[in-house]
Nucleic acid binder design. Structure first.
Length: 115
DNA sequence: TAAATGACAAGTG
DNA sequence: CCACTTGCCATTT
């Protein structure tokens, strides 16, 4: 790892976050290029199956600070939930080779990543 | 302190 | 597949 960007998880600020939030951040950062995960999936793997909305909140508030690949998180139907920025997210995914159906959905069978 | 909100999800008919 | 309801829970108002 080269700089602070890559070792944020040992910073005091990161350590102060609750364990669920920390795990959510780690999981989102580990979604590979060209793959996606769902809000509920991230929540489940982070230890709280009912924390989907918290995952959304974390994406909304901490994506920039922790450099999260926020565009790789979609809803359980494979749709983009984000309203403002819907196009931006779609483009970001297409750049990674992900294609959308005519219904503007990604094929989760094909692109879903599991840790 | 209470009510509303939200980048969600699963169940039901 | 669609429309609608219910459950969720930290954060915001």
């Amino acid at each position: 790892m080269e700089k602070n960007e890559e070792i944020f998880w040992v910073t005091e600020e990161f350590q102060r976050l609750n364990p669920f939030t920390q795990e959510v951040i780690r999981l989102i950062k580990s979604i590979p290029y060209g793959k996606v995960q769902t809000y509920g999936g991230i929540a489940r793997f982070a230890g709280n199956p009912r924390g989907a909305r918290q995952v959304a909140r974390i994406l909304h508030s901490l994506s920039k600070k922790y450099g999260l690949p926020w565009h790789r998180v979609v809803n359980s139907k494979g749709e983009i939930s984000l309203i403002d920025g819907r196009e931006e997210q779609k483009k970001a995914l297409e750049i990674e080779g992900i294609t959308f159906t005519s219904e503007n959905k990604v094929n989760l069978k094909h692109y879903l990543w599991e840790p």
